[in-house]
Design a protein around this nucleic acid. Structure first.
Lengths: 193, 193
DNA sequence: TTTGTTAGTTAGTTATAACTAACATTTTAT
DNA sequence: ATAAAATGTTAGTTATAACTAACTAACAAA
């Protein structure tokens, strides 16, 4: 049962680092939480950085936004935006551990988060712009700045994710479904009569 | 010139902690950056935590959102939302150092950020809800869930702030003015024809 | 000139964290 | 049952960080 020990260690490391960051967690802490000796940790992962590397490898998730846009959208704006919103939030949720660990040690891990959150979001932004452009050409959307609209949409989702990730009870007590619903409704129809 | 030294130390501490967080900065680092000896730092602030406390005191800013809502709004939805958005972003900008320091050491400083970002935002949320309710009663807005709408609006602003605070070049290369403009336009009128 | 304040220097204490080494013990596979 | 692999234990090394103490130097007000 070699894999079991490794798993326990990684689970402990993930949990602790997600809460406290990398440098505020000691290998001793990890060993204690995992219920193994400190030596065992070093035997599985040579250095503390090695543990982090393994945690990041395990929790990094690359989404397939292209596929979503190429295949899964219906053309109905409300439905599509809801699907996109859910896909983005699901993606961020899967990378939540990485997000929290890297934000807490951004000086050391500056490159890591960019790789995950930033690049992927940039890609999604482009896809979304393209989608809006198509909608405009079909006469379904106002002819407004697509980049501006896509930015507003994604920013809101990002804000929702971050506030939920950083606080257990933030100003958003809202559930995901409710939030997405309101976001899409407002985005599509505005608030004015 | 007693104040000068203290200022230099606090400026160095703020800069270093904003970039690296609290526990990744040593008193030696601070002294070096400030151009004073380590002893001098301890003579001014008894403990490392004392330095942080002083930094937080200096950079915490309490906004007057009530005043904004009570006096400065015109009744014109677009203008008002722009003013509110700018006020919120200005408030967050002033607390940016605190935000970055506390996010990087949230396990140690969990309470501090709540005091600033969270509570104030909650208050703003309520004020915004009230404002929307008034607009609805005047027939200027759709009769929709005010909490939902206010949440969407603030989440977007929060997301904008966070992405700019955490990354120099995030998916948002947008300037503040441009972003606020697009946000308000979309929020008010939606994207559909 | 004296005295008080502020800052620098040097040295040391204590604690902790990231490892390493050597050996004992348990667990698993054959 | 026995060898091999995995884990535990104990002790130690090295580095760093948060302080403390004691003494000295510079300067300004009285």
């Amino acid at each position: 049962m070699k894999k079991d020990t490794k798993d326990k260690i990684l689970a402990a490391a993930t949990s602790l680092m997600t809460e406290r960051g990398y440098s505020n967690v000691s290998v001793k802490d990890i060993a204690l939480t995992a219920g193994v000796s400190e030596m065992t940790v070093f035997r599985h992962f040579e250095t503390k950085m090695g543990i982090l590397q393994a945690v990041l490898d395990r929790h990094s998730y690359i989404p397939y936004f292209e596929q979503l846009f190429a295949q899964d959208l219906s053309g109905n704006l409300v439905n599509d935006l809801q699907q996109i919103a859910n896909a983005y939030l699901a993606f961020m949720e899967k990378n939540k551990a990485i997000f929290l660990i890297t934000t807490q040690d951004r000086s050391i891990l500056s490159g890591v988060m960019d790789l995950i959150s930033d690049n992927q979001t940039k890609q999604l932004l482009k896809l979304l712009e393209g989608y809006f452009q198509a909608q405009i050409e079909q006469g379904k959307m106002k002819d407004i700045d697509t980049n501006g609209q896509a930015t507003v949409f994604l920013t809101s989702l990002f804000g929702f994710f971050v506030s939920n990730a950083l606080w257990d009870e933030h100003f958003l007590k809202k559930q995901k479904e409710s939030f997405v619903h309101h976001l899409v409704a407002t985005f599509v129809g505005g608030v004015c009569i």
